[in-house]
Structure formats: C-alpha cells, structure tokens
C-alpha cells in the first residue's frame, strides 16, 4: 500500500486520516491505532519542519501488514539528518521550577513507540523504516 503527500502540516493531517483508514491498519486494536497515529504524525511533521524547511516536496509512505504489526517505509527528497544519523530522542528534562520544554518530544515518542527503526540516506533520498506494534507494548503499560 503506497501513499504520497505534499509537505505541509495540513497535508499531514489529511494524509494521517487516509493512512489510519487503509486496510494495512485494519487489524490494529484501538490502543495500537492511537500509537500509530502519534508515530506517523511525528515522523511526517518532522519531515515537513526539518527535511523540507527550505523547499517543498513530496513524502511517500509505504505500509505493509506483517500480522503482528505494520511495517512503514517513509521516503523524502529533503535535507538529510545531521551526520546522516537519527536524533537520539532523549526526553527533555522536565523541571517545573525552570522553563518547561515546548518541543523536542517528537523523536522521543517515535523511538519509544516503534520497533526496528532504521535510517539510510541514498541518492539524495531519506529512507526511514520502522514497525508499528499491532498490540499492547511496554510503552503502553507504564
């Protein structure tokens, strides 16, 4: 299953609705569906904000139902990650006596919620792949 969207926040919103409705997502339970929407929103918004911050472009998303989850491959022709490596995705420190963070949560959420995360930069294209869990994961339990 294959989708292409343009790089804007409103296109991401519409694209998420299509992705969540497609047949590869059909077997996810309600909780896993929520997780899938969080992850896909963070991945796609990150591409809009960073990879395509200076120019518009398209984002392709391929989904494959693995039975125990959904494999997702996302490609774009925007800028590479710095040093061609994914952010570490540490949770920003939360100190109520200091200035609370208003961002920096995206990669923490992605890394916490997916399995088998990989990134490669090939021929001016970013390739990101991961597996969305099909059922309850450790992250849902704490």
């Amino acid at each position: 299953m294959y989708f292409t969207i343009e790089s804007s926040p409103i296109e991401v919103r519409h694209g998420l609705a299509c992705l969540l409705a497609c047949s590869a997502m059909r077997d996810l339970d309600e909780c896993a569906r929520g997780t899938a929407e969080i992850v896909l929103a963070e991945v796609l918004n990150n591409i809009v904000e960073h990879a395509y911050s200076e120019q518009k472009g398209s984002i392709s998303i391929a989904l494959c139902d693995l039975g125990a989850g959904v494999e997702v491959v996302v490609t774009d022709q925007g800028r590479a990650f710095p040093q061609e490596q994914l952010p570490q995705g540490k949770l920003p420190p939360i100190d109520t006596t200091a200035d609370l963070p208003e961002g920096g949560f995206g990669w923490y959420l992605i890394r916490t919620l997916v399995k088998d995360l990989t990134y490669r930069r090939l021929q001016s294209t970013n390739h990101l792949s991961f597996v969305l869990p099909g059922a309850v994961t450790a992250a849902d339990l704490f």
Binding site: T35, I38, L91, I94, Y108, L109, T112, D140
Partner: peptide, 16 residues
Amino acid sequence: TPTVAKVFRLTRMDTV
C-alpha cells in the same frame, strides 16, 4: 481521551 493521555504520560507531562 486515551491517545491524548498517552502523549502526556509518555512525555511525563502528566506530572506537570
């Protein structure tokens, strides 16, 4: 709602 609560819980913002 459940997905919103999950985002607050995972980011520890439910403690704030």
